[in-house]
């Protein structure tokens, strides 16, 4: 048997791939697709509901002001301010002790500021 015949036989065999049996596969996929579609729909409805609630809250600015005041009072602003000043003091005293140029010190100060911002966000 020559090479060409072999390849022809192989091509013929490859052209008839075995077919997997469905065994409920299609149904499972359609069910899952329907489920995910329903979940998305519920999520969308929930988001819409949240939006409505927000609209109601926004419709009454006085209520929002009162809420913000309560929130501001609940935040420990004094401890935050102390932490910030401690950080600045630490950064400047450390900078004075180091034999670095002004540009390097500036970079160090920037890094310290970044650190402060991070702490403020966390606080």
């Amino acid at each position: 048997m020559n090479d060409d015949t072999d390849f022809e036989q192989l091509d013929a065999l490859l052209a008839r791939p075995a077919t997997p049996a469905d065994r409920g596969f299609s149904e499972r996929v359609v069910l899952r697709a329907g489920k995910s579609q329903r979940t998305r729909r519920y999520l969308f409805l929930a988001m819409g509901l949240c939006w409505f609630v927000l609209m109601f809250v926004a419709a009454s600015p006085q209520a929002i002001y009162a809420d913000l005041m309560t929130l501001a009072q609940s935040l420990e602003t004094i401890s935050l301010r102390n932490t910030v000043s401690d950080q600045i003091e630490f950064a400047t005293s450390a900078a004075r002790q180091l034999p670095y140029s002004t540009a390097t010190l500036l970079l160090l100060a920037l890094a310290a500021l970044g650190n402060l911002a991070k702490m403020a966000i966390r606080a």
């Binding site: 791939p17 075995a18 077919t19 997997p20 469905d22 596969f25 299609s26 149904e27 996929v29 359609v30 697709a33 329907g34 579609q37």
Partner: peptide, 23 residues
């Protein structure tokens, strides 16, 4: 129309080839 039946028909039409390929 987000028609489930149409999607189901598309799945049935292509599932064998896709599964055979992935296997």
């Amino acid at each position: 129309r987000r028609d489930d039946e149409a999607f189901s028909a598309l799945v049935r039409m292509h599932q064998a080839k896709i599964r055979a390929y992935l296997l």
